[in-house]
Structure formats: structure tokens, C-alpha cells
Simulated assay, not measured.
Amino acid sequence: MNLSLYAVNAFLILDSTGKRIFAKYYSPPHSKEGEGSIFQSVKEEKTFEKGLFEKTWKTQNDILSYDGKLVVMLTVMDVAFYIVGGMEENEIMLYECLRSIRDALELIYKYIPDKRTILDNYDQLVIVVDETIDDGIILESEPSIIASRVTKGPVSEAQAIVSDFKEMGFMSGLQKARDKFAETILKGSF
């Protein structure tokens, strides 16, 4: 058995007509040019996507083998989410990764993602996928953690200090608070 962290070959979102909304293909970063990549050109990718869509759109299959690859699919509203992996990959792990991306998008968008919402918030989709999958490695599978990484706003200095205190032990946090308080008094801005 060839065990590897590089479980995902592609992540795709296609609309109800089979057109590409989002596609990201992965190959291990240490592989040589053309080696490890599942397709050599965009034309080959689109041909694969078209055939995959034709085989899966009207079916109820969530997990299938297509063109020598393991494909996991979720249909949501008017879009289909796909994760493509090698035949030796764990389909449950791939399904959980796909589900976590969909659920993170639901948390961010506040409702079920459809084509219009995805296109209007494309930047958030890209960040969700990048926070979940990196070079084919599944990094995170908890939707709330993924969503929180995407939606974090700018942090004020006071929030950063409170966050620092939360991560420290009680005594070291107390000492840092004393130091900050003394520094504020000495500056005369209290």
C-alpha cells in the first residue's frame, strides 16, 4: 500500500449545466514536471469535468469510480461539489473533507450555498478551499474552525492583548498585565 498525505487530486464545483465554477487540481510539490499531475492541460481537465458531470448529475451516487479515480460528490441546490482522489484513498476521509467545505460555506454565507452566492463571494470560497486543502493534503475538517479562519476581522491591540493572555498561564498572564499597566502609567496615557 502506498501511503501518502497527498490524498486529494482535485476539488471541483460545477453548476447544473456542467460548467466549471471552481476547479483546483493538485500534485505533490516535490514531483517532477508532469509527474504526479493527473492532467497535462486545461483541455484535458475540462474533458474530465464534462464526463464526470454527465455520469453523476442525475444519479444519487455520492461515491464512485470514474476514469481510474475515486470521486466523492455532494449536490447542493444548483451546484455539485466534487473531490477527486486516487483509487487507494479512503472515501470516508474524502467525503468528510468535502462535507466540511460545504458546511463551512454554509456557516459563512448563513444559508445553503448556491451558484449565485458562490460567485458573489468567490474570494471566501477560495480561502475556504485553501484552509481545508493544501497541495492535496487535507489540513482541516472542522467547518467551524475553517469558517472562523475565513471570517476573522481585523484585531485591535486590546483584543490581541486579551488573546495573548488567554494563551498564557495565569501567573505569566498576570505578570504581563502588570508590565503593560506599568508601561501605560509611565507613558502618561492612562
Results as ranks from 00 to 15, higher is better:
Lys19Ser: 13
Ser4Gly: 11
Met73Ile: 12
Lys166Thr: 06
Leu107Gln: 13
Trp57Asp: 01
Tyr82Ile: 10
Ile112Cys: 00
Thr56Met: 03
Leu98Thr: 10
Ala23Val: 02
Pro113Glu: 03
Ser141Pro: 00
Glu91Met: 10
Gly86Arg: 08
Val128Asn: 06
Leu105Gly: 04
Leu139Arg: 11
Val71Tyr: 06
Lys166Ile: 14
Gly18Lys: 04
Leu14Ser: 03
Ile108Lys: 03
Leu74Gln: 10
Val155His: 03
Glu88Gly: 10
Phe39Pro: 02
Met87Ser: 12
Met93Gln: 07
Lys58Asn: 10
Val129His: 00
Val42Pro: 00
Val79Asp: 00
Tyr6Gly: 05
Arg149Asn: 12
Ile13Ala: 01
Glu131Phe: 09
Lys32Pro: 01
Glu131Val: 03
Asp114Asn: 14
Ser141Asp: 09
Gln60Thr: 07
Val42Asp: 14
Glu44Asn: 07
Ser156Ile: 08
Leu119Trp: 03
Ser172Gln: 15
Cys97Thr: 13
Leu5Thr: 05
Met87Tyr: 02
Arg149Phe: 11
Pro29Ile: 06
Lys46Tyr: 10
Asn121Cys: 09
Leu70Val: 04
Ser100Asp: 03
Lys187Ile: 03
Leu94Thr: 04
Glu35Pro: 03
Thr56Asn: 02
Met77Ser: 15
Ile133Thr: 00
Trp57Thr: 00
Thr151Ile: 14
Val84Cys: 12
Ile92His: 06
Asp62Tyr: 00
Lys43Pro: 00
Glu88Asp: 14
Leu139Gln: 12
Phe22Ser: 02
Glu89Gly: 04
Val71Asp: 09
Ile63Leu: 07
Ala160Asn: 07
Tyr95Cys: 02
Ile138His: 10
Ser172Val: 08
Val150Ser: 05
Val126Asp: 05
Lys176Tyr: 13
Asp15Lys: 02
Ser141Thr: 15
Thr184Pro: 04
Ile127Asn: 01
Lys69Asp: 09
Phe22His: 15
Asn90Asp: 15
Ala147Ile: 08
Ser163Pro: 01
Thr151Leu: 13
Leu52Cys: 01
Gly136Ile: 02
Phe53Gly: 02
Ala10Met: 15
Ser27Gln: 11
Met73His: 02
Thr17Ser: 11
Gln40Lys: 13
Lys24Ile: 07
Ala80Thr: 06
Tyr111Trp: 02
Ile145Gly: 00
Gln40Met: 11
Gly86Gln: 12
Arg99Gln: 04
Lys187Cys: 07
Thr17Phe: 12
Val162Phe: 14
